[in-house]
């Protein structure tokens, strides 16, 4: 309803040597250091079991780091504070909406708990519902809502209390693809508008690229790489990151500069005349996608090569294709690994 007053002071989140070992001995996180600047959206990306959710729960205060680990909000040590004293907003994968309350009561819950005056609660809840386009659902019970509506209620509930940090744990995973795309755009707009520090956990690389100012790629309880989406995509530090974000080809053949291996993205190679080619392969499958054709080639290596081409001609099964990788966009994983994972 009312436009935001002065943007709230943003909160930086700092993790110092945060490791997590569960009581049964499982090592979920190796000691992790991380700086999230105020107002930034950081995405934790990785396969399931990589520790991304545990790291988020450490920041939330739902888990304590192993002794020695510290969590700081704007330099203030909050490690010992439970979640209810950290003033964070959290959106859970299952939404965790309260089935015994209406939509309005769900959104008002955090304000009621804080003993905010009734008139102000009403105003703020209405503002949140308008912002999330769920004003007409106010009196509904949670079990009468669709998945997308629940998601919106969960978001409204989390931001109604004006948290210092917004934490989102795979918030779109339970939705179908189309809805996911739409809500992704909405969440992106929301985060920009609020200017709030946000940490978003997902295993979906498209979501991570779309939403993150920076992406933290995680693997086996450690950070594999931190950087803006472009950097992660174009300059992955190792094969794991390269593989996890987008598709990558590794062709064992000496390029013009004498590397033992050509590493490149499907869109970074062209079909050329045989004498200009780095290598050639036979077409085993061709998928016409409209704007491009995706070819699967049986190449010189053991693994098939994936190639995206804008050529308008049709490709036949078994056809031989000569390929040249654009020299300026080749990846050199060995050199990247040496350069280290410095964020």
């Amino acid at each position: 309803m009312t436009p935001r007053e002065t943007p709230p002071e943003t909160t930086a989140v700092t993790l110092r040597a945060c490791a997590k070992t569960f009581p049964d001995g499982t090592r979920a996180l190796r000691p992790i250091d991380l700086e999230v600047t105020g107002g930034e959206t950081v995405v934790f990306l990785g396969p399931s079991g990589c520790g991304k959710t545990t790291l988020l729960r450490l920041i939330a205060g739902l888990e304590r780091p192993d002794p020695g680990g510290r969590v700081l909000f704007n330099g203030e040590d909050v490690t010992a504070r439970p979640i209810e004293k950290r003033n964070v907003g959290m959106v859970f994968q299952s939404y965790a909406l309260f089935p015994n309350m209406t939509v309005r009561d769900n959104i008002a819950y955090g304000l009621k708990v804080r003993r905010v005056a009734r008139a102000e609660i009403d105003a703020r809840v209405t503002e949140m519902m308008d912002m999330m386009h769920i004003g007409d659902l106010a009196a509904r019970r949670v079990d009468q809502l669709s998945g997308g509506q629940r998601q919106r209620v969960a978001l409204a509930r989390a931001i109604a209390v004006r948290p210092r940090v917004l934490l989102l744990d795979e918030p779109l995973t339970a939705l179908d693809a189309l809805l996911r795309e739409r809500l992704r755009v909405e969440i992106d707009g929301l985060l920009r508008r609020l200017g709030i520090t946000a940490i978003y956990v997902t295993h979906d690389q498209a979501e991570a690229m779309a939403l993150g100012d920076r992406i933290v790629v995680m693997s086996h309880g450690a950070i594999a790489q931190i950087g803006p989406p472009r950097e992660i995509y174009h300059r992955p530090v190792n094969a794991f990151v390269a593989d996890f974000i987008g598709t990558i080809n590794r062709v064992p053949c000496a390029g013009s500069d004498g590397d033992p291996e050509l590493v490149f993205r499907p869109e970074d190679a062209d079909i050329v005349a045989p004498h200009e080619a780095d290598f050639s392969g036979t077409v085993t499958a061709a998928f016409f996608l409209g704007d491009r054709t995706r070819l699967i080639l049986a190449g010189p290596g053991e693994t098939p090569v994936v190639l995206d081409t804008r050529e308008r001609t049709a490709f036949d099964h078994g056809q031989s294709v000569a390929v040249r990788v654009r020299p300026d966009v080749r990846m050199d994983l060995a050199a990247m690994a040496e350069a280290g994972t410095a964020p």
Binding site: L62, V88, G89, M90, L97, F98
Partner: peptide, 17 residues
């Protein structure tokens, strides 16, 4: 059956003791 741990975490995240 109501997955009360998640509900409790949700309430805690909103500041409830």
């Amino acid at each position: 059956s109501i997955r009360f741990r998640e509900l409790e975490e949700g309430a805690a995240s909103l500041g409830a003791s």
